[in-house]
Design a protein around this nucleic acid. Sequence first.
DNA 1: GATAGGATTCACT
DNA 2: GTGAATCCTATCA
Length: 183
Amino acid sequence: LLESGALAAAEGLLGCVLVHEAPDGRLAGRIVETEAYTEDDPASHCFPGRTERNRAMFGPAGHAYVYVSYGMHRCMNVVTGREGRGEAVLIRALDPLEGVEAMIARRGWQGRAARDLCNGPGKVCQAMGIGLEFYGMDLLTGGALRLEAGRLRTDETVLVTPRIGISKAVDWPRRFVVRKGES
DNA sequence: GATAGGATTCACT
DNA sequence: GTGAATCCTATCA
């Protein structure tokens, strides 16, 4: 699935579970929002070409691409496409499944609704304890950080929306969100 | 060697 | 809704 391309992978990753076997407990969250980045996307880190920072994006599918954003936040991507292709899917939001207490402790605050815990790219990494030490790690071979297969419930549908938070090609419909049938 | 900008988040008005 | 915080990377002199 991951090799088939960023667009298909971004949609396919919805419903899958991201698991981190952290020293202080198992953390898990269901992926509910993703965003696709490809080589022809002006907003993508790989657009200007291959550099030291984004080299992981050009590697084999299934590896992690972690980068620092705005100096204070970390964002995590799942590399897609074949080696040398420069594609990735940004994990924008999770639905916490396990280790919620540990996530709250990591984030250093408590109180808000559970879904506020992982409803942003930076929050996802902070809550899951994902740092630069996971750069380039294979997520499919059962390491400390890994991806587990999952599916959407029958009452859930995929919503495709324009992107946010960037300044180039903003209106490209490459953001995929899980929408629950309840509303 | 120096500078500009970014796939964000939080607090305050 | 608007603005500040903050640091790593790429680009230019």
